[in-house]
Amino acid sequence: MASNLVEKTPNELCEATKKPTLIVARPTITVREALRMMANHNIVSLPIYSHHSDNIVTIVDIVDILNYIIKEAVADEKLPSKINSEKARNLDSQIEAVMTLDSDQESYRIFNTDANECIKNTLKAYSKGIHRSLVIDYNNKIPPYILTQSDIIKYIQAHPECLPTIDFKSSLRSLGLFKGRNVVTGYDHETALNVYRRMAEHKLTGIAIVNRERELVGNLSASDLRGLSYESIDSLVSLVLEFLA
């Protein structure tokens, strides 16, 4: 009989997927260097070592850096037509400049998971807003890697039997997952920059894009910033669907 999802270990979840080598930066890296490193490695989050050891102590997300650049480069301008990131102050400050102490943000906190223990506590952390976990093999058999909510979803999709009490043909409403709350959206006539601002304001990682008839026409998320560099950051003032094209 297949074991329940909560009894699985991170290694069991990811055994069919080769996790990429973790790209980690020193805390002395600058904001400019961090964004360039993310672009070069095509990643949207960057783990940071401790000042005093090789322990990974935090993760900086590309949205954190984007919010920092927006704040510095366009200030309170409502509808900027251009972003000149080189006008932003302190781009050569250490990456800690963009690390927020807001407990609701991913930066400045990291959740650790033992590679050989069940993921029950990790799932609890995910249910409270954590999006990813640093998996550490304390037996030193494999290097550390990041376990994301997407990894969990992919495993469930491939192994629905790991949730034996869930009828996957049921509606979201019948499962108690539909709360009737207002959905935060962006409009296709807005710039990508303003939609990302709304995402940050509501502490979201993705947002639906609709047209004037409120029909769904796209989706904007943090992953769409993958590969963003100082040379291409001006593209954020494009209409959101043009930015996504």
Rank of each mutant, 00 (worst) to 15 (best):
E7C: 08
E7A: 09
K8E: 09
K8Q: 10
K8L: 15
T9V: 11
T9R: 02
T9H: 03
P10E: 06
N11M: 14
N11W: 03
N11H: 07
N11D: 09
N11G: 07
E12V: 09
E12I: 12
E12R: 08
L13H: 07
L13Y: 09
L13K: 02
L13R: 08
C14L: 15
C14H: 10
E15T: 13
A16L: 13
A16W: 10
A16C: 11
T17Y: 11
T17K: 14
K18P: 05
K18G: 10
K18H: 10
K18V: 14
K18S: 12
K19F: 10
K19R: 07
P20R: 01
T21K: 12
T21N: 12
L22K: 00
L22Q: 00
L22F: 05
V24Y: 00
A25P: 07
A25D: 05
A25G: 04
A25W: 02
A25T: 05
R26N: 13
R26Q: 13
R26S: 15
R26W: 08
P27S: 01
P27N: 05
P27L: 01
P27A: 03
T28K: 03
T28D: 03
T28P: 00
T28H: 02
T28C: 01
I29P: 01
I29Y: 06
T30P: 05
T30N: 06
T30R: 06
T30K: 05
T30I: 05
V31C: 06
V31D: 10
V31M: 07
V31N: 01
R32F: 13
R32D: 10
R32V: 07
E33V: 02
A34H: 05
L35W: 04
L35S: 01
L35P: 04
R36C: 11
R36T: 15
M37H: 11
M37S: 12
M37P: 03
M37D: 09
M38P: 11
M38K: 06
A39W: 08
A39Y: 06
N40R: 12
N40D: 15
N40W: 10
N40H: 14
H41I: 08
H41V: 10
H41F: 15
H41G: 09
H41S: 14
H41E: 15
H41Y: 14
N42S: 10
N42Q: 08
I43C: 09
I43V: 11
V44R: 06
S45A: 11
L46Q: 02
L46V: 09
P47G: 00
P47F: 00
Y49K: 00
Y49M: 02
Y49A: 00
S50V: 01
H51L: 09
H51A: 11
H52P: 00
H52D: 13
H52A: 06
H52C: 05
S53N: 04
S53M: 01
D54V: 11
D54A: 12
D54L: 12
